[in-house]
Computed example of a mutant assay.
Amino acid sequence: MRYRVLGPTQAVRPDGTPVPVGGARLRALLAALALRAGHTVPASALVDDVWADAPPADATGALQALVGRLRRALGADAVASVDGGYRLDARPDDVDVFRFDRLVGEGCRALADGDAAKASAVLADALALWTGDPLADLPERAADGARWEARRLDARRAGAGAALALGRAEQA
């Protein structure tokens, strides 16, 4: 399964079919877990991520209900209960934001090494992962979203540098 948070939060099967994940809070939970893919996230941190400053009276029960709904959508094994928290069973490269970061690093290294063609292709792949505002479904994440937008601008600058190095000034 792949997870997208560089735009509206989505889960996508290996064949590219989107998995319906309805409801703003369910998408917020998925985004919060995806940002820590493979790591246990304390329940209190998930409550903060999903409800921000307005948690329900029974936040623990509400979170458990949301996790149950997310498991029904993604599959029972997708979200594990672990020591007072939950863990999304995913590798970092299964989450677009981490894949993006890895590709940007790879593209910038290729550009620094003088391989503009590789840099251009890898940076284009990285930028193609974006589908909208980053972390759009997480309340109170404007600062994190701005950080990813800045990283996106870095990728665009590096892509323009690669295009110039390839003699494609009009593309830059």
Rank of each mutant, 00 (worst) to 15 (best):
P134L: 02
L103P: 10
L88C: 07
R141N: 12
C108Y: 05
V50A: 11
A110H: 11
V79I: 08
A78M: 05
D83F: 04
G114L: 07
F100K: 04
A54E: 12
D137H: 02
P92T: 09
A116C: 12
G61P: 08
Y86G: 03
D115T: 08
A62K: 02
G114I: 08
A57E: 12
A54T: 15
V122H: 12
L103D: 07
G114P: 07
P55H: 10
L127P: 03
R141A: 15
V95E: 11
G132E: 02
P139M: 02
K118R: 15
Q64E: 14
V104H: 07
L63F: 02
V104S: 06
A116I: 13
D58P: 01
D77N: 10
A78W: 01
D49L: 02
G114E: 07
H39E: 15
A124S: 15
D48H: 12
A65M: 05
A124R: 04
A54K: 00
D93Y: 14
D83A: 15
R99L: 13
V41S: 04
G61M: 00
L46M: 03
A116W: 12
G132F: 01
T60H: 03
T40E: 15
A112L: 12
L66H: 09
A121S: 09
L63Q: 00
P92D: 08
A80K: 13
D137E: 04
T131K: 05
T40F: 04
L103W: 06
F98P: 11
D137C: 06
R102G: 10
A73D: 13
A54H: 06
G105D: 04
L88H: 02
C108L: 08
D53C: 10
S120L: 07
L129G: 07
R102V: 09
D89R: 13
W130F: 14
A54Q: 13
A54V: 09
V50D: 14
A62L: 10
V82L: 01
T131I: 06
D89V: 15
S120M: 04
D89T: 15
P139Y: 00
P55A: 05
Q64Y: 08
E140P: 07
Q64I: 11
A90R: 03
A112E: 13
T131S: 15
S44D: 09
R102N: 11
D113V: 07
T131F: 08
D125P: 06
P92G: 03
R99W: 03
A124N: 11
V104D: 02
L129H: 06
R102C: 05
L74Q: 08
R71K: 14
V104A: 09
R91I: 09
V47W: 00
A62N: 15
L88Q: 04
Y86P: 04
R102W: 10
V67W: 06
E140W: 07
D49W: 00
A73R: 03
A128E: 07
V79F: 02
G75K: 05
A116N: 09
T131C: 07
G84P: 01
A57F: 12
G85D: 01
L46N: 01
A62D: 15
A80F: 03
